[in-house]
Amino acid sequence: MIFKFVIIAFVSSVIASMGIGGGSIFILLSSLFNLFPYKEVKFYNLFMFIITGFIATIFNIKNKKVNLKEIIKIVLPVIFGSMFGIFLLKFIDDNILRSIFYIIIMFFGIYEIISSLIKIKNAKDNKKRKEALL
């Protein structure tokens, strides 16, 4: 079990530090392999994301990808929103909202795939055109 846990944590943490959905992968794989009860999985996921995010932030500041001013500008509304979201959970059934949210996220994913493929194709065409001119 420890071996599976280490592999899942490692893969998820690498993906999480790249900002492409590592938290979701950790929850999904840990649940699929039945490693822990769901609440425990969510706790380990949060812990992993805090450490990963903290270390990744240090490297990203060093690499000049982000600066503290930008982080603070966004983090405060996100924190207030999170507290409001947790408060809302007491009053609303999140099952319907969850389905809508997943449909929107799915749209984002499809949009990302299509726009990336178009950019990759355009880059290839430009390269071919340059080679033809030479």
Binding site: S13, G21, I55, I105, I120
Partner: peptide, 29 residues
Amino acid sequence: IAIISSYLGTKIMKNLRAEIINLISGILI
């Protein structure tokens, strides 16, 4: 694991083209 992999993740991201990162992200989502 988080310390090692976040170092690795930021290194990988730095060397990947934007459209490749977005493509991987889209497929994962």
